[in-house]
Amino acid sequence: MNTIFKQIRNLRLNINFQNKSISLFSPLRLKEINETQNKNELIISGHIVNSGREPYLLKNPHPTVCPVCASGLDIKHTDVLILSQFVRTDGCMLPRRTTGLCRRSQKRISTLVAMAQKSGLMPNLTPANSKKDPKKRYGWKKYNKYFDESTIKIR
């Protein structure tokens, strides 16, 4: 019985291995998906693009730790030029498998992103249905607010 299971597992591994080696798309490239609508047809096309970050990438002097910890920066919620590197165009935080941060930094950065969004400091990185301008928000939310980074609770 045991041997049969082992064989099946080996077979699966082989299949997986085979699947990995065959790919329909060119793998390991940054992709951009565009949708264009003309008359009755919707054209969805994928483009391989460059992130444009390579020439400005900070060198990580300690490759075993995550880029944020290695940089040694005390990032505040007003540092929108740093925080905007970790969000999508709709302003939502990128997952940890994409950012490659450690658990602590990911948690801290996502809290800082939320603070910056609440302060209205990244109005161009918002969902499509957003009013963009923080002054058009409802009730008390339209007034300026700031946050204290020491209130972020991380173990």
Partner: peptide, 8 residues
């Protein structure tokens, strides 16, 4: 830039 986006 602190991070680069992964290739996939």
């Amino acid at each position: 830039k602190l991070i680069d986006l992964p290739k996939n």
